[in-house]
Design a protein around this nucleic acid. Structure first.
Lengths: 339, 339
DNA sequence: GTGAAAGCGCTAACAG
DNA sequence: CTGTTAGCGCTTTCAC
């Protein structure tokens, strides 16, 4: 039999209530009683039943987290940030992997609600129709979107300046004179792709250069994608002097293909990634990329979520973190470099 | 007010019990009643309260997972495997990050127990004293160790042949004639380090070569470690013709340092990693490494855990998956290569 | 400073 | 086929 408050109460002769109070450090209990009960609890190896406790408590001190892709280190870093803050403030995390699937995402959120989470954090897909928006509009607990947003609910998001980030990338390349820039963009259906695409467009506009859609490829975001895309471009004899990648993972495949095709980076082709994964500094050559504060993003998301949990009336406001272009060795040497 | 069974019961005129039965697809309920109740539940947006349900149910259909390091893709892959199997069989996952800290690990397990998980999976640290062993010996629910073990509880583990894996690495190198092999080993306090160290020793013994401890460095497992270690070795004018790394992450830093020191891989130095991370095939040169079935490891761990949950009497037996040396471009060309 | 009683939402046992 | 009752372990009144 598991040790419960009742066990301790019987063993010590106090009421269940008194035991409960002691174990929750409630005031107005005599020192001696406290001592007796605490030592008995210790002796019996009492483990509080959080489930039973949350029957009466409105709070479970649990949150849900939906990752879009467990095998992508970008999301892992965000989750690490969430977990760090959660642990600090005494929350536990239920997690699930949506695999970029809209239905699965909603399913996971429903399961979370069923577990009575106090709130949740999602890295959401965009949603093809209004279903997604409707779904989130009817959610009874606080929630935050991390690193992405959903049209109509942007205020729930913590973002990292996708548009500005990609604009700075293209601005750098265009100012340097590049005109044939291969753009290996991200998957449709997520806000980042959309925002970075428009950041790119802005850079072209600001530099009075016409952008050509035939240089844009939408990939899913795996290294093989980048590898294939470059092979294809080369086979089709496309001219390009720079490659901009939706993320560092794609860039990895790109570097691979370029090396195999004897194209030197950055001399023949400049390559820029996005995300600044831990690995990127160890690629050959070290990858120039947009440094996104992944860990911080998760940390902040959890921090904000808690504020909403504690004050359900609080207004939602989009939170913008900033990213910056980080020069390494995959871009030309006429720029200052940093590690 | 949240919709409960009672709400639906009142609205339809049936008893709470009947409503409960319908919503759990219990038999012996008339088709018409079922229809009425189901549509009412739908209409009111009923969300079952899993917390309340598990007050009476012995099962919560929740498991806990303690990762040793959230930012290491090796563990992420294992977790992805766990999650995949968990989702298939309708379990939810509570996760936490121990950061290789023994105390934190136990703390997380205690929290899990408090949440009444049906079982849990841990990537455990080794434990400096008997405390860890004692702790796990008194746990009232089934649990599995993934990818590592704890002395005295090895039967709870799903492993991937660390000893054999490292032995095959050193066997390859020694047979090829290497005598000065730098071994960048892993952190003390985990079983993998211990087992791989003895796999190395076995290879030396089998090849009648004396191993020299001065070639062994114990690192924590980050890329900077590998980078530093090689720099140090070179500065100390150590002679070496091969580097064996505890994991691919260390190997990344090693390749970086070697490139900077104008040492060609594999011509001047052969380099071998461990784990076969997704990234490793995209390194320059593509990394020869030991391919560990990470995803499968997690999947199997969850699968076995469920069996123990369903049959608490079942005997624990160490489960061994196998790894294999995967040749790529960071080792000599006189061996068959594969991608 | 402590105890008794009620009840959170649900499921199981027992009736009918 | 459906309803009544009890109770899971805990916290929250409300007493004394």
């Amino acid at each position: 039999m598991r040790t419960t408050l009742k066990t301790i109460a019987t063993a010590t002769g106090f009421s269940i209530n008194t035991v409960s109070r002691v174990l929750r450090n409630d005031t107005r209990i005599s020192a001696s009683t406290t001592r007796i009960i605490q030592s008995k609890a210790e002796e019996l190896g009492y483990i509080p039943d959080a489930i039973a406790s949350s029957m009466r408590n409105p709070r479970t001190r649990t949150i849900g987290v939906v990752s879009a892709d467990f095998s992508n280190p970008f999301f892992s870093e965000i989750i690490r940030g969430i977990e760090e803050r959660a642990q600090e403030i005494g929350y536990q995390m239920l997690v699930g992997n949506s695999e970029e699937n809209e239905e699965k995402e909603r399913h996971l959120v429903r399961l979370f609600l069923s577990r009575k989470v106090d709130g949740f954090i999602v890295m959401p897909v965009f949603g093809k129709d209004s279903k997604h928006l409707e779904f989130y509009s009817s959610i009874p607990v606080p929630f935050i979107f991390a690193g992405r947003y959903i049209d109509g609910l942007k205020s729930h998001s913590v973002l990292h300046g996708d548009e500005d980030g990609e604009e700075s990338v293209f601005d750098y390349l265009l100012k340097k004179g590049h005109r044939n820039i291969l753009y290996l963009s991200g998957p449709d259906g997520i806000s980042n792709t959309q925002d970075r695409d428009s950041g790119r467009q802005k850079a072209y506009d600001n530099n009075d250069v016409r952008s050509d859609q035939k240089y844009v490829f939408h990939l899913t975001g795996h290294p093989e994608d980048g590898y294939q895309a470059i092979n294809t471009a080369i086979n089709k004899s496309m001219e390009f002097s720079a490659v901009v990648c939706f993320n560092d993972i794609i860039a990895m495949g790109v570097l691979k293909s370029l090396a195999e095709n004897d194209l030197s980076v950055p001399n023949d082709v400049e390559v820029i990634g996005y995300d600044n994964l831990m690995f990127s500094q160890f690629m050959e050559p070290a990858l120039t990329t947009v440094d996104v504060p992944k860990h911080r993003l998760g940390y902040v998301a959890m921090d904000i979520l808690e504020k909403h949990i504690n004050d359900p009336e609080m207004k939602y406001e989009t939170n913008h973190l900033s990213s910056r272009l980080l020069f390494r060795d995959s871009t030309g040497s006429d720029k200052a470099k940093q590690r």
